[in-house]
Amino acid sequence: MAELLTDAEVDTALTGLPQWQRAGSEIVRTIELPTFPAAIALVDRVAEAAETRNHHPDIDIRWRTVTFTCSTHFKGGLTELDVALAQEIDRLAAG
């Protein structure tokens, strides 16, 4: 079972996730894509990865802008699951 990360562990993890910011008990990244279909395609790729991991981000889509929010809700904060999902979102966004 995933354990909550300490503040120091979150800070350390964020050094490897420079496009993510902490917002309380969540980490957040906003990505602007060139078109609305490109934004939806990224969301589709992230959805598949999240389903495979059984760990899902909150996703907000506004035209070409997608915001991903990661938190382990059943734990009430951030766990290694969120860091790993953020890393995967970064990988998918770069590809």
Rank of each mutant, 00 (worst) to 15 (best):
D60E: 13
G77D: 00
F74Q: 12
T52G: 09
L4P: 11
L33Q: 12
M1V: 14
G24C: 01
P57H: 05
L92H: 02
T52F: 05
G95F: 00
P34S: 10
R64C: 14
Q21Y: 11
T35Q: 10
A39W: 03
T6C: 08
V28T: 10
I40F: 15
Q87P: 11
E32C: 02
Q21E: 15
R29N: 12
K75S: 05
T65N: 09
T12F: 10
G76V: 02
I61T: 12
A84K: 13
I59K: 04
T12E: 15
I31S: 11
G76T: 07
T30E: 13
I59P: 06
D60P: 00
D82R: 05
E80S: 11
A38G: 06
R91P: 02
I89Y: 00
F74K: 13
H56G: 03
R45C: 05
Q19A: 14
A94Y: 05
A2F: 01
A2L: 01
A8T: 14
V43G: 05
C70F: 08
R62S: 13
G95L: 08
L33F: 03
P57W: 06
A2W: 02
A47E: 11
E3G: 12
A86I: 01
M1P: 14
Q87N: 13
D60I: 14
P37Q: 11
A50S: 15
Q87V: 03
A86W: 00
L17T: 10
Q21M: 12
D7M: 09
R29S: 06
D60L: 13
A94P: 04
P18V: 08
L33D: 02
A47K: 11
I40Q: 06
D58G: 03
A49S: 10
I89N: 05
E9A: 14
L92T: 02
D82N: 08
L33P: 02
G95A: 07
I31G: 03
E32L: 06
A13H: 03
E51N: 12
C70D: 09
L78M: 11
A47W: 01
T35C: 09
R45I: 09
H56Y: 06
F68I: 06
H56V: 01
E26H: 14
V83T: 01
D7G: 08
E32F: 06
F36D: 10
G95M: 00
A41W: 03
I40R: 04
H56N: 10
E88A: 02
V28H: 03
L42V: 09
D44A: 13
V83E: 01
S71F: 11
L14D: 03
I61D: 08
A2Y: 10
Q21C: 13
A84I: 04
T67F: 09
L5V: 08
F36P: 06
A13E: 09
A38Q: 13
D44N: 15
R53K: 12
T67K: 07
A50D: 05
H73C: 03
V10P: 02
E26G: 10
E3D: 13
R53F: 01
H56E: 08
I59R: 05
E80T: 15
E80L: 10
H73T: 09
T15I: 02
A8P: 07
A93H: 01
R22H: 10
L85S: 04
I40L: 15
N54K: 12
V66H: 07
L4Y: 01
R45G: 09
P37H: 11
I40S: 08
L4C: 08
L81F: 12
F68N: 01
T72G: 07
A84E: 13
